[in-house]
Design a protein around this nucleic acid. Structure first.
Lengths: 121, 121, 121, 121
DNA sequence: GTGGTCTAGACCACG
DNA sequence: GTGGTCTAGACCACT
C-alpha cells in the first residue's frame, strides 16, 4: 500500500506525501481517520523518523492532514476541493506536454490515438 | 531564442541542452551548422562557462552535436532518428500522466477532450 | 458550553482552562459553585483524565478555582481582580499587534476604523 | 537586523522566517536580491544549518523567496499581493481579539482609546 | 561554493 | 505513547 522506490530520484518524503494524497483522493483514507504515527511508519519503512515528519509536514501544508500534538495525525476532510485542484493540475500538465509536442510536429490526432490505444485499467 | 529561467528547478545546463535539441529538431539549426563557442554563449547568457560546457557535453552524449578541436562545435545530422526518439519520449510522458490521472478517476475521454479543445498554434 | 477543537494547535488543557476562566469572568459560574469532577468531565468530553487534571491545576494556579480534598472543585471569588488582570492582558495583546501592524505601514487610524466597522454582538 | 530570542517560545526557524518576511514587506529586501547562504547565516547566528534551511523552506512556501540550486536564495517580487494578504491577516487578528474582549465586557470605545494613547513610532 | 535530502540522536510539550 | 524542534554530520547535484 505504501512502498518506497529508493532508485527513484524523487525524494522519499515526496513519494510518501504523494502516495498518501493519492490514496486520500481515491477515498481509501476517510475524513478524521488516523494515520500511522511518525515512529511507527518510520519503523515499517525502515526510514528515519525525520523523513516521515517531513512527509507529514508537506501534507499538512497541502491541507490534506492535520496533526494534534500528543494524539497523532489525521486526515482532514475537504476531499472534493482537493480533487478539483488535482484535476486542474493534470489538465495543465497534459496541455503543456501536448504544446511541446506540437512544437516538434506531433499532431493532436497522434497524441489522442496514443491515449485511445492505451489499456484501460 | 535561447533564454534561461533561473527560477525553474530544472538545471541550467539541462535547460540549455533541451532548448538546443528542440531547435535542432524543429530545423532551426541545420546539419553541420556551427554553434556559438562556450565562452561566447557564457558571456551572452551571463553564465559560468562550466555550465555551458556541461550542456554541450550533454548534447554530445545525445549525438546532437559534435565538436572539432580548435574549430568549434557543430550540429550533427541524424535528425530523423533523433526525432523518433523524442516522439517515443513524449508518448511515454503522455501515457504516464494519463495513467496517474486514471488513478484519480479521470477518464481517457476527458483527457482527450482537453486536448481537442486546445487552440492549435 | 464546553467544547474542544482538536484541530486547534492550542493544547486541550489550555482550551478547557481558558474557556472556564472566560465563563467565570462572564458570571456564568458563580462564587463557590462546584465544577464537574475530573472523571465526569473526562467522560463527557471523551478525554484523558490527566488532561482535565492539568486544566484544573492551571486554573488553580490562576486562582480561579480551589479544590477541597474529598469534596470537589469550586469557583473562587476574586472575580474583580481576575477581570482587571484579564483586561491588562488584552490591552497588551492589542498594543503588540498594532505595533507589528505599524511596522508594515498600517496606520492606527485604519486599525481603529476596522474595529468601529465591526458589528457589535 | 536579524537576531534571535532564544527565550521566546516561538521556534527559531519561525522567528527568522517572520523577520525576513517583515523586512521584505517593508522594502528592506528588493526583488531578486540575494539572501545570505544557509551556511553563512548559520555561522552568523550560531545556529545549525538545518534550522536555517527550514526557515528558508517556510519562506519558499509563503512565496516570499525562491531558491536556485548551486546559486543561492533570492527574494521573489510579488510584494504588493503579499502585503495585502498580511494586512488581511492583521485585520482578522484585531477583530478576533476585540471580539473576545467584548465577551468580557470591554467596550470597543475602550479598546480604541488604548490604541490612540499609544505612542506612534 | 550553493541548496536539498537524509540519517542519528536528543529534548520538549502534550495526552 | 504522540508530534515538533533542534543539532551534528553526511552525501548529492549543480555552479
Amino acid at each position: 500500500m505504501l512502498y518506497i522506490d529508493f532508485r527513484n530520484s524523487k525524494p522519499i518524503y515526496e513519494q510518501i506525501a504523494d502516495r498518501i494524497e493519492e490514496m486520500t483522493i481515491q477515498g481509501i483514507y476517510k475524513t478524521d481517520e488516523q494515520l500511522p504515527s511518525i515512529r511507527q511508519l518510520a519503523m515499517e519503512l525502515s526510514i528515519n523518523p525525520n523523513t516521515i515528519q517531513k512527509a507529514y509536514s508537506e501534507l499538512e501544508n497541502r491541507n490534506i492532514i492535520y496533526s494534534v500534538k500528543g494524539r497523532g495525525i489525521f486526515i482532514s476532510g475537504n476531499h472534493e476541493e482537493l480533487k478539483n485542484k488535482k484535476i486542474l493540475e493534470f489538465k495543465n500538465q497534459v496541455l503543456s506536454i501536448t504544446k511541446s509536442a506540437q512544437n516538434l510536429g506531433i499532431t493532436k490526432k497522434q497524441i489522442i490515438s496514443w491515449i485511445e490505444e492505451e489499456k484501460e485499467d
